[in-house]
Design a protein around this nucleic acid. Structure first.
Lengths: 112, 112
DNA sequence: CTCCTATGGCTAGCGTGGCTAGCTATAGGT
DNA sequence: ACCTATAGCTAGCCACGCTAGCCATAGGAG
């Protein structure tokens, strides 16, 4: 999986992992790996800065806790994040439909 | 349509426009615009450098001609470009299936 | 004639954002 | 003593689409 293909779609994936309740960063990373059959095995250097960006944007809200002697930062969707997720979903639909049509579809109209 | 979502997928789209015969850059741009219902209205500054990159990579081959007093550079797929297109198609399948599953799918397994 | 638009091509440099490399720290197994 | 998994973080690199700008011809509008 080339790296660049993820650009612009990561936020949607991160938000989606939070749709059913709070998760901390590492759990998000693992959820994406497992949920994609290993395709999205994102390094921490991808996940953590992205979460900070989403938090600054007000789409998620994080809070510290300590579990088993390890500190965790758990994130949950804000109302604005919920809306952003819906938006991301529909724009993914739009985008993927268009690309699939162009790539897989019927022969192209004759060239000029 | 946010700009970054295209990153990493442009080559596939460009190669796909050439699958049914040669096209020049401007025609490629128009084909993508028309074929996507206006979603992919790419500026020249996106298309031309990308074509040059693909040509340097040996995936397409360009040749100059003059039509109606205007010079054109027409591109066609090389055999290696054909293979690249097939590859791009299957990796798009892979990618889009994964994202769709993560975004749209069933509820996530319970968080740890 | 002049101007605008569409056609057709190009480049320099910007900006976004995921990745690499590197770091800290605890828990638990070998 | 060492390694792995868990858990978090940052600085800086780099790929690549975009902005802004340029050149040139054809054809229609004014």
């Amino acid at each position: 999986m080339r790296a660049e293909v993820l650009k612009g779609h990561l936020d949607a994936l991160l938000l989606a992992t939070l749709q059913d309740g709070p998760r901390h960063g590492y759990a998000i990373k693992e959820a994406l790996r497992a949920g994609s059959g290993g395709r999205f095995d994102l390094p921490g250097g991808t996940v953590y800065p992205a979460l900070h960006r989403l938090e600054r944007a007000g789409l998620i809200r994080g809070s510290w806790s300590v579990v088993n002697g390890r500190r965790r930062r758990s994130y949950q969707l804000t109302p604005s994040g919920q809306r952003a997720l819906s938006q991301e979903r529909s724009s993914w639909q739009d985008f993927s439909t268009a690309v699939t049509a162009l790539l897989g579809g019927e022969p192209w109209p004759a060239a000029t």
